[in-house]
Design a protein around this nucleic acid. Structure first.
Length: 469
RNA sequence: GGCCCGGUGGGAGAGAGGCUAUCCAGAGGAUUGCAAAUCCUUGUACACCAGUUCGAAUCUGGUCCGGGCCUCCA
């Protein structure tokens, strides 16, 4: 079965035909680093990480580029509000972003270019656009002349005429036409800036992605991803810049956009203030894998209504999955080398990254394994396959016992393992002699400490109960 | 105003012309010293109105409702 992807540019699902089947190239718009990443920022990270995992399975080489935007007016204002240097802000939130996304099992990109490391490339691209008469200089600004670009607006289904007619804001004096956008703008003495042929200034927002994708992936590459809100104007303008600078060479073959995340049915946005940061959820004790699964439970193009109940559901599903693996350590499961079976999960994901369908398949596998309910070598092989399938989604990467005992949680109070094990031993001794009153008393003692016991055929296992998440 | 998406059972959420989605929650049963876990069974789903079709939740047209973009935003 072929890999099919929904292409925003054509508005339909298409069979994926790479530029070079030996080397897939993908660019995804990364964060502007001036604040903690919220759960909506995490969605494209998780979605495209999952896509990257699939691509790496299907093709011999994948280069995944995700940028860091470290020069932007929002960063400038955040720095001045907090009385900190720009560099302090960008370094701090870049590190925070990395730490948070790692918790979500994001493998990260192969190349993570920073905008400020590519000013030279950006200036060169602007010069090229001026030279080819797609851009003009006015009042210290360099602007892209939208009407010079034949297909401008195709990605977002807008015509330049509509955009001009719909312009809601007052047109700046330096624009020849309301739809024109800034490639380079002047900086005041207190704003960060770089020397350029047009004076000291800084790049417009869209320029970095055009310049950095060209440098790291070439003029034409396979996939460009990001959130739906980037379709216009960001990606539209990227296309304009790159196609015109490259004398009409195709820029991106497949445009992929993830849907919005809503909270209580409303778009989550910084301006509305109705957002959860990833850090906040982690600190509350939600596991990164739980957050990741909650994000993958709906298809990437669908809107996702984020809720605590959704997280709780994801947690319950992961409990079920880890219960399948329990009885073997993660190392045993990983190291059990076996021929990779035909994976139905892979086939499901090849249908436009159908992660909910893949999760469904995982539940099917889980049910089959539960019915076997023995822990010999043959089930170890099945667990190995189950683990591999789950790994495509980037979940089930922890040791099962650690998952249930909360060992991966930083925020948990230390559990006294010796006390727990001793109490279980005492209780089992009581059970063996038929003293169920004592057995239940010991169970209650542990229960009060949020330790839940399960008596299985192989013995008694325990887990941290709900409330600790 | 223009342009996009959507509306599926208590909740989440796939599917996509005829075949049980699945998970969570609920009910009944099996199992268990008791539990938990697991297994089995189970409930009223496809916004509305027409049309196409032997057959539509799935296609077409319209209606209503919701969200988004057109301005910084994943």
């Amino acid at each position: 079965m072929d890999l099919t992807l929904y292409n925003t540019y054509s508005g339909q699902k298409e069979i994926f035909v790479p530029v070079d089947a030996e080397h897939i190239r993908m660019y995804v718009c990364g964060p502007t680093v001036y604040n903690y990443a919220h759960i909506g920022n995490a969605r494209p990270v998780v979605v495209f990480d999952t896509l990257a995992r699939l691509l790496r399975k299907l093709f011999p080489k994948v280069t995944y580029v995700r940028n860091i935007t470290d020069i932007d007016d929002k960063i400038i204002s955040a720095a001045s509000e907090q009385g900190k240097k720009i560099n302090f802000i960008t370094t701090r939130y870049t590190n925070q972003f990395h730490a948070d996304m790692a918790e979500l099992n994001d493998n990260g990109p192969d190349i993570e270019p920073h905008a400020t490391d590519h000013i030279t490339e950006m200036i060169k691209m602007v010069e090229c656009l001026i030279e080819k008469n797609f851009a003009y200089v006015k009042e210290g600004h360099v602007l892209f002349s939208v009407k010079k670009m034949k297909d401008y607006g195709k990605l977002s289904s807008h015509s330049p005429d509509e955009l001009i007619a719909g312009a809601r804001i007052e047109v700046s004096s330096y624009k020849n036409s309301p739809a024109d956008f800034v490639l380079w703008k002047p900086s005041s003495s207190e704003q960060p800036g770089w020397h350029s042929p047009w004076g000291r200034g800084r790049p417009g927002w869209h320029l970095e992605c055009s310049a950095m994708s060209e440098k790291h992936l070439g003029e034409t590459f396979d996939i460009h991803g990001g959130g739906q809100d980037l379709i216009f104007p960001h990606h539209e303008n990227e296309i304009a810049q790159s196609v015109c600078a490259h004398s009409g060479a195709p820029f991106v073959n497949y445009w992929m956009h993830n849907g919005y995340l809503t909270v209580d049915g409303e778009k989550m946005s910084k301006s509305l203030g109705n957002f959860y940061t990833v850090r906040q959820l982690l600190d509350e004790g939600w596991d990164g894998e739980t957050i990741r699964l909650a994000l993958l439970k709906s298809h990437y193009r669908q809107p996702l209504n984020f809720s605590l109940r959704g997280l709780q559901d994801a947690k319950s599903e992961l409990d079920r999955f880890y219960r399948v693996l329990r009885g073997h350590s993660l190392a045993e499961i990983i190291n059990f080398s076996s021929e990779s079976q035909h994976s139905t999960i892979e086939a499901t994901l090849k249908n436009d990254l159908n992660t909910p369908g893949a999760i469904h398949q995982l539940h099917g596998e889980a049910s089959r394994l539960f019915r076997l309910s023995n822990n010999d070598q043959s089930t170890l092989k099945l667990k190995n396959q189950f683990f591999k399938d789950a790994s495509l989604l980037g979940i089930l990467q922890r040791d099962p016992e650690d998952w249930f005992k909360g060992n991966n949680k930083k925020s948990n109070d230390k559990i006294d393992m010796v006390f727990v094990e001793d109490t279980i031993a005492l209780r089992n001794a009581a059970r063996a002699r038929g003293d169920f009153i004592e057995a239940d008393r010991l169970r209650d003692i542990l229960s009060a400490k949020n330790i839940m016991l399960e008596d299985n055929v192989d013995g008694t296992v325990w887990k941290v109960g709900e409330g600790q998440k």
